[in-house]
Design a protein around this nucleic acid. Sequence first.
DNA 1: CACTATACGGAACGCACGCCCCGCTTTGTC
DNA 2: GACAAAGCGGGGCGTGCGTTCCGTATAGTG
Lengths: 190, 190
Amino acid sequence: MSIETTKPLRADAARNRQLVLKAALDTFASEGLGVPLDEIARRAGVGAGTIYRHFPTKDDLFRAVIGSLLADIVADGRAMLHEPEPGEALFRFLRLLILHWGADNQGLVDAFATVGLDWGSAGPVAEEEFLVLLGDLLRAAQDAGNARAEITPLEVKTLMIGCQAMQGYNAALAESVTEVVLNGMRPRSA
Amino acid sequence: MSIETTKPLRADAARNRQLVLKAALDTFASEGLGVPLDEIARRAGVGAGTIYRHFPTKDDLFRAVIGSLLADIVADGRAMLHEPEPGEALFRFLRLLILHWGADNQGLVDAFATVGLDWGSAGPVAEEEFLVLLGDLLRAAQDAGNARAEITPLEVKTLMIGCQAMQGYNAALAESVTEVVLNGMRPRSA
DNA sequence: CACTATACGGAACGCACGCCCCGCTTTGTC
DNA sequence: GACAAAGCGGGGCGTGCGTTCCGTATAGTG
């Protein structure tokens, strides 16, 4: 293993790299991960070959985009832990993730729903961090008596993915069905 | 509009039609709706052209298969309404649908999750009937005080689709997260 | 300003899949 | 058993998409 020697990019190369990342962010968000690379190239105003020089495969591009998104999301979640009422933070975070992030970003939904996608390994934030955050939020909620004790972080993630699927099926009902699911996480007698 | 004049099939044609339907049932179940038609043809032991003679498009084949499946499912649900404890029938039906039917049949899950798929029009049972059944089960549960009053049949369907997505993401957690969702449908104070 | 390494664009390739076509086979009938 | 109609198989076409290739353009350097 040698040290990371990121050799300096030529000016146009660096510029195009940013154009591609920006276009990929927008395109994955609006069209989902299934979008053809040509469409991203078109929106970025570059050729398909240029994308492949910077990101050897489509997955690499996707990881770069989603990884940085996930970093923002985790940051939001961590901040919520330190607001008043940390026992409600889990529910606020899940609503934010499903109704705000998920509704505006099909690519993110696709990424969460795809099983066995090691999207963390190349992104700024590993998927593992997301699970740790969920665990922290969950524990805070459980300590406050707002969430059932037997629920695990992985179950919370699974429930969130289910809520995103519900939203994808019927966006108009997203809010109400999400509340049903969140209610199911609360203790029976609260 | 003329009356339905299903002209008698030749013996080999009728036999192949059944082979195709059987192979399609198995293949859609194990591989999902995305499976190539060639795979179904291979399993049925016929050529691709033979499938297209009986079912003009892949969608037609899918509708024939899923439509009959849906008929079985609706029959199961109707039966549950007449068992003792009709107020619990909704929950029993949803568990059956998610943990039994959904777990064994990826094609069915795909069919439910695909928005705007008019799978009822050509099958024995219209999707509409499924919603009506859900409505009947839901009303029985609400009358018994087992389900929240503000929930609608379409919300129940949406929640079911979400549960199937959860199962697809993590089959090991399917049972526990489904219970969380079902709990969310129950009144707060029960 | 010349020169080279670097990067660019988009045509082209390989592959997968839905669907069609057509020469050959099988079925049912007289 | 002969003959027409019905059916069959699977090769082939069109399309879409990920990826590669290579001739051309451009940034950086002395």
